[in-house]
Amino acid sequence: MRVILPLPEVLQRESSRALPVMRLSWRHGILLAGLLCLFTIAADAAGTSPIRSSVFAVLARWTPLLLHGFALNILISVLSMAIGTALGAFLGLALISPDRPLRGTAWGVTQFFRNAPWLVLLFFMIFILPYHLHIGSFDFVLPDWSKAVIGLSLPVMANVAEIVRGGVQSIPNGQWEASESLGFTRHQQLWMIILPQAIRRMLPPWMNLYAILTTSTTLASIVGVNDVVTLAGQVLSAEGSRPDLLAPIYGYVLVMFYIYIYPIAWATRRLEHKYQVRN
């Protein structure tokens, strides 16, 4: 017999099982690949003629270029994550500082960048950063993609700061009390007792943030970076804007992201599960 639960309880269960963050499963991959095949075959059947090449041939021909664009997305994501994590770690430590003015300032910075739309920050950086950079006698040209890196690393910084703060504050107060009563200084408490425990708890949300960041690198196409989405658009134009190619090309890009991000999402869930059991 099926047990029928009252609705609020069902909702509560659902929400406790899966937070509203991205939860990829292998089923999504199969669904995606299936859809891509379906579109491609349908498009192929509808559109092939002696003067137009088949959809498969088009995908194959442009794969090196699209992968090249995708590599730029990965580069942007890795660099933004590295810069954002380094800055965010400092900001996060400032958020838990006993020094009030420092904590207040850090809170303001965090709130500002956490609540700003990523795309707006990107546009802002593209326009605010100079085209040329003079350092001594050197003259660098700042490419658009490097501005995108800086633009995206700002919200990453704010989110990492919150992850650090949350991780540190999730450690029971007794750990602070015990180490304090043993004579550890605050600096020692933080680095020897609290952070080694907190980092394990920070890792899953940090990886989750990276997955979100990677998908968000496609925003760079809007500000003119030659990322995979921009290139996909150019491929479509080069093929004479055939409408039958739209779904297969963008589907192909989706699959690229899926293949890259799914293992990260999987590993994140494994880690979460592991630490849940231990704690």
Binding site: P172, G174, Q175, E177, A178, S179, E180, S181, L182, G183, I193, P196, Q197
Partner: peptide, 16 residues
């Protein structure tokens, strides 16, 4: 604190 040791209800050992 060199002179005073303290033991807590929840042990508070360093788990790592």
């Amino acid at each position: 604190r060199k002179h005073v040791g303290m033991v807590f209800q929840q042990y508070n050992l360093f788990p790592h």
